[in-house]
Design a protein around this nucleic acid. Structure first.
Lengths: 141, 141
DNA sequence: ATAAACCTGACTAAAATAGTCAAGTATCTT
DNA sequence: AAGATACTTGACTATTTTAGTCAGGTTTAT
């Protein structure tokens, strides 16, 4: 299981977007400057977010990105999935691994990873972008 | 954050050890055969487990490894820590990253990772080796 | 027209992972 | 005492992933 910078950047960028997305689209250049994330890398990340319909793009001058749903409806697990942060525990059924085919014969820890996966996903499913934005604003005061 | 094969193997091997550790030490060779994990890799892993006093070694013929505590007292977080599975989310305070020094100025997602870390660690702290062994025996019937 | 900003795909250095390999040392059995 | 079993240690390596960079587009407001 991994949670890497890409996922973190995605969340940081979306929190930023949610805060500044009132009327006008927010350019990646601005997010890049505010959050200290490379513009090129942001473009990769937003490409994925757009494909998963988490954001919408507005091309041309004064363009940028806009949230595609309300911040309340965007859950963290949606974000991580979009940028390929697989909240997946290590597979234990590579071919011919003893005692686990994932079905009738399970390796001794198979259920454990399932539980863990659920545990983490539940955490992410409960948190919305809005929660994070509020959190952030409160702490700024 | 990562959970990789090393952590999984450690847990698999210890569950195996806990089940067969009645009177005699269990050899890595046996664990290797039963669990389908390379002997050399197991040796690396058990070296770490021994240093953290999770297992004890018995050298010589008929030697092997023995649990150093009761299975009930060995929690999963102890195991993961021992084999360097850092349940650590990505750091967000690499030098000069904007808006986060981990202290007075926190990046927008700083608290999130802290919470997540706690969430996962709680899961691991609640699960003991004994729980897994029981789980496993029950499912075998 | 031109500049801002999105869009796409290919490329790469560095790190981590999942091992392997080799050369031991300790201890039990015979 | 010899031999076998099994732990012990450290170095080495192929592969994969990550975290970007780079280059060359296209779209659209002004």
């Amino acid at each position: 299981m991994k949670l890497t910078s890409r996922g973190r950047y995605a969340v940081m960028a979306l929190v930023d977007l949610a805060r500044f997305d009132n009327i006008n689209p927010v350019s990646l250049r601005d997010i890049s400057l505010r959050q200290g994330i490379s513009l090129d890398y942001l473009e990769q990340i937003f490409s994925k977010l757009r494909k998963k319909e988490i954001v919408q793009s507005v091309r041309g001058t004064q363009g940028g990105y806009v949230l595609n749903k309300k911040a309340k409806e965007i859950k963290l697990n949606n974000i991580f999935e979009a940028v390929d942060e697989k909240v997946k525990t290590v597979q234990c059924n590579k071919e011919s691994k003893k005692g686990c085919n994932g079905k009738s014969i399970k390796c001794v820890t198979h259920n454990l990873w399932d539980e863990l996966e659920n545990h983490i996903n539940n955490f992410f499913k409960e948190k919305s972008l809005e929660d994070l934005v509020k959190d952030n604003i409160e702490r700024r005061i």
